[in-house]
Design a protein around this nucleic acid. Structure first.
Lengths: 337, 337
DNA sequence: CTGAAAGCGCTTACAG
DNA sequence: CTGAAAGCGCTTACAG
């Protein structure tokens, strides 16, 4: 059974298909009664305009492409929820693609986006670099990068304010009385790691605390990396009394490693994360962390895209503040340390 | 700058656009040399066929619509990853929509899917009922339900085998020596809850253990509900020594409530979850649970859809077995209880 | 206010 | 093997 087209409605209403088109799109040219009548008929026959046919002539698809490394990453999922939510408000649809950090797959994604003529693209926390962004930009559609690791001057972006958020988190530990504070970063070379490290250092400097290179270890953004990094720190002759982690996943691994050593968080060692993923409040102990407003950032990315599509001169780079959430993984250091 | 069309390529290659179309689609009618030449030109000029134009004539879009309640739900995210992964293999794109369990939004989603002429639809763990499924079925495209709460006879589905998985989980507790085993369900009226409860009862019956209604409490699928339910159970004159929970979220809340009472898991009370979400291995203690192969189920749902599209008579209802993952939240009951 | 016509970018019988 | 023609379902100047 074929879906009914504008012509079927035209026949039913005894008008031309042009009139139907106008009536349905709310043109003021058509007499109100005719509009009413046509709308009724269209409604009754369950008519749905073909997006494909429309976009063929308007050359807009009301579709945006969203690339994430993996939607199973809770950060990405929250962001995508925000994006889709906002897109829904503007009657846009989102085509979701996982790059899985595989170059071949990324190429296919771009191709698919091009063939589907998406009106814009949002890339979330891509770890792949300038090459990919370059490739995306060849689609000639507006692109918004969200927490991208390789910001490009030409691209628009929404990013968490890593520096000030990390500084706040480190400052929290300093205020509690910690002096030996470690930083467990992500893999080398990713910008947000550099920035978060920068905030950590800035807080240390402002408190006139010495920077000790042995207190800076690199993880890999996941619990395993965090655990390994924490073990390195715990083997130090002079253990840190607090660890600021690149993200919650890292912190989770660090807490596990600490517990495995028979030490306790926060009485022996304080731990701070970054992101405020869902499980942060359910870890043992509940994790003190920096909250990224993930959904709002997703919304913001979509709004930026919409402004770009409306040729509205929009701010090219938006920085979003993080919020320190103090839970129970941080406490003053022990007296005798 | 307009994207180049098939006509542009035709001009460049000195052939008709029909020939370009055939060459690009791999028609055997065209001479190999011509195909080569045209492909080269198309490649060089970065030509991308318009999916919209193509689907207008073929009346297929190579697009599937996926509805989830919320992509921020880790279960849905894993499933969607599996779906998109499999879709990518067949050159299909997925349009993602969050229903947010809001009826108005669901209506809009169906509408969007209809206008975009998706070739098929996958609905994941919808809590909304028969009405919605009915509405979806009016799109006249194949639909696959994944862990849907209101299975419809006419629909195809992939579901976890709730009954046998729950029976296995309960049996595990019985084998450990537990006799007073509670079940914390989801809200009333959802099918998977009924089935999981069924598995629990079946295991009890098989072991000749008495069924005690006061040991069955309802949560709401999230930690808050699990915590409240656990508190109810802990206030019972004769506390259960083990709790089987509808899902991991519920178990998380239950464990928190148990800890809040100063009791310990598993030495005082054993807890079992369902799903094996990421955090299950990172809870304290790591959670014994039933693993649902979420990604594989997503893949399976897409494969089922593809078979349906190929008019291949496919099995209408697929049941996937769950796997019991024993971690550290279960142990034999205390001697003296 | 309404209609006839052209055209968006493809695919695919129909001829040759 | 290749081309001219029709048509998919819309929108939108152009006439009236």
């Amino acid at each position: 059974m074929r879906r009914s087209s504008i012509k079927d409605i035209a026949r039913l209403a005894n008008v031309s298909h042009s009139t139907v088109s106008r009536a349905l799109s709310g043109s003021t040219l058509i007499s109100p009664e005719t509009v009413q009548r046509i709308r009724r008929i269209a409604e009754d026959s369950g008519y749905r305009p073909s997006a494909a046919a429309r976009s063929l002539v308007t050359s807009r698809t009301a579709t945006i492409g969203v690339v994430v490394t993996s939607i199973a990453d809770p950060f990405a999922a929250e962001v995508v929820l925000g994006i889709e939510d906002a897109a829904n408000d503007c009657n846009y649809s989102v085509i979701l693609a996982n790059s899985c950090a595989q170059p071949e797959r990324e190429v296919r994604v771009v191709r698919a986006f091009e063939e589907r003529r998406v009106d814009g693209i949002i890339v979330t926390s891509s770890r792949v670099g300038a090459v990919y962004v370059e490739m995306l930009s060849q689609t000639r559609v507006p692109i918004v990068l969200l927490n991208n690791q390789h910001p490009s001057e030409v691209m628009h972006s929404v990013m968490i304010d890593n520096l000030s958020a990390s500084q706040k988190a480190t400052r929290h530990l300093i205020d509690l009385g910690h002096r030996r504070i470690a930083y467990v970063g992500d893999r080398f070379g990713c910008q947000s790691d550099t920035e978060r490290f920068g905030g950590y250092r800035a807080a240390l400097d402002l408190a006139y605390l010495p920077f000790q290179p042995e207190y800076v270890v690199h993880g890999s953004g996941n619990p395993e990396g965090g655990a390994a990094a924490a073990e390195t720190l715990l083997s130090l002759p002079s253990q840190p009394t607090a660890i600021f982690c690149y993200n919650d996943m890292t912190a989770l691994g660090a807490m596990r490693a600490i517990a495995a050593r028979g030490l306790s968080v926060p009485s022996d060692i304080s731990v701070v994360g970054f992101d405020d993923l869902f499980f942060a409040q359910y870890s043992t102990p509940p994790l003190t962390t920096v909250r990224q407003p993930m959904r709002e950032m997703g919304r913001l990315a979509l709004d930026t895209l919409m402004k770009l599509l409306a040729e509205d001169g929009s701010q090219p780079n938006i920085k979003v503040p993080g919020e320190l959430i103090v839970r129970h993984s941080t406490a003053p250091p022990k007296e005798n340390t």
